[in-house]
Amino acid sequence: MRKIILAAIAVLAFGGVAAAQNFPSRPVTIIVPFSAGGPSDAMARILAERMKVTLGEQVLVENVTGAGGSVGVGRAVRSPPDGYTISFGHLGTHVANGAVYKLGYDLVTDLEPVALLPSNPMIIVSKKAVPATSLKEFVAWLKAQPTAPTAGTAGAGSGSHIAGVYFESITGIKLQYVPYRGTGPAMNDLVAGQIDMIVDQTSNSIGQVRAGNIRAYAVTDSKRVESASDIPTVDEAGLPGFHMTLWSGLWVPKGTPKDVVAKLNAATVDALNDPAVRKQLENLGLQMPPKDKLTPEALGAWQKAEIAKWWPMIKAANVKVD
C-alpha cells in the first residue's frame, strides 16, 4: 500500500511539473475588475495583445465589475492556481479594498505577485461648465457651492475615491461621492455634466482633456507628465504635497507553480520592453516602472508597503461601502 501511495504522489508531482513545463497550452484570461473602456481595461488590453507573442497563446481580457473591483479580484482568487487566470489590479483593488470591504480573501496571502505595471499620477478634472481655469480658482469654486460638490469614483475604496478623500483632507472641502463600476462610466457622466469633478487617473482623462470636453487643473505629482506637459503639477498650481500615483500590477491565485509565475512575468516584461507597447502606454500618460522593480518579489514588497501606508489613512477617514 505504501508503494502505491508513493507512486501516486510521484505521478501527481510529475504531472504538476509537466503542466508547468507545457504552460500555456490554451488561452490565458486576465480579469480586469472594472468596466470596459476605462484606464485599467485599456492597459490590460494593450499588454494582453503583446503577451500572447511571448506565451504563444491568446491572452483574453474579461471584465468582472462590482464592489470597487473586489468582485473581480475574488473571481481570480477562487480560480485554479494554474496560471490561466490572472488578476489585474491596482492601489484600489489590491491595497485599499482590504481596509474597506469584508473580502472573504486576503490580498497578500491568497495571491501570488507576478509583475508591477506602469503607473500614472492622478489628475484633477471637472466638467466643462465649471468657470474656473486654474486649480486655485477651482478650489474656491468648490468651496462656494451651496451643497457638497459631486465627485465620481470607481466605488468605495477605489483609487479615485482614495484620491478624493486625500483631496478633502488637504483642502477642507466636503465632497459627495458618486460611485460607478469604473472610472470609464464616471468619465462619461463628467463629460455630460452630470457630476462636478473626478480626481482621476491621467490615462483615463487625458483624451477628454485634449478633446476639450473637460477641464484639467493639475497632476498629483512633483513633476509634469510628458504626454501632458502643459498641465501643471499640484505643487505649481497651489496645492503642494498632494501627491498620489496609481500603480497597477498582475497577480495569480496562491499556489500557482513558480515556473508558471516566471513565464507570466517574462511575458509581461517582454511586453513592457516592446517599443510599440511603451509608446502606447506613455501616450496614455503612464510611467514605466524601473527595471529592478519588475520581479514578482518587488511587486510583493511594494504591495505590503502600500498597505502599511494607506490603510491607516483610509480607516481614519472612516471610508465605508456606499
Rank of each mutant, 00 (worst) to 15 (best):
P289E: 01
M288H: 10
A266R: 13
Q287G: 01
V269A: 00
Q287F: 09
G255T: 13
L272T: 05
N265L: 10
K263T: 06
Q287M: 06
D259S: 12
L250V: 02
V269Y: 00
L281T: 04
L264P: 12
S248K: 13
G255C: 13
V269S: 00
K279Y: 08
V269I: 04
L264V: 10
G249Y: 11
M244Y: 15
L284R: 03
A262W: 05
K258P: 01
T245K: 13
D274E: 11
T245G: 11
A266W: 06
D259I: 05
P275T: 04
K258L: 08
D259G: 09
G285V: 05
A267I: 01
Q280S: 11
Q280A: 10
L250Y: 10
V260Q: 09
T268A: 03
K279V: 08
L284K: 01
P257K: 07
V277K: 07
P253N: 13
N265F: 08
D270C: 01
K263H: 04
L284H: 00
V269T: 02
P257G: 09
M244R: 13
V261P: 06
A266C: 13
D274L: 07
K279G: 03
K279F: 09
L250P: 04
N283T: 02
L250Q: 04
T245R: 14
V277R: 07
L250M: 09
T245I: 14
L284Q: 00
V252P: 03
E282C: 07
N273H: 02
K254C: 09
W247M: 15
L264E: 11
V277M: 09
L281S: 05
R278F: 12
T268E: 01
S248Q: 15
T245H: 14
G249T: 13
H243A: 15
A276N: 13
P257W: 09
G285F: 04
D259K: 07
L250A: 02
T245N: 14
A266M: 08
W247S: 15
L264C: 13
A276C: 01
K279W: 10
P275G: 04
V260D: 02
P253K: 12
K258G: 05
P289A: 06
N273Y: 00
T245C: 08
L284P: 00
K258N: 10
K279Q: 11
G255A: 14
P290W: 06
W251P: 12
E282R: 05
T268H: 00
L264Y: 11
T256F: 05
D274V: 06
N273C: 01
K258E: 07
L281G: 07
K279I: 08
D270V: 00
D259P: 08
K254Y: 14
K258M: 09
P257N: 07
V277Q: 08
L272G: 01
V260K: 05
P253E: 14
A271L: 10
T245M: 14
Q287K: 05
N273D: 04
Q280G: 07
M244S: 11
T245W: 15
L281D: 08
L250H: 06
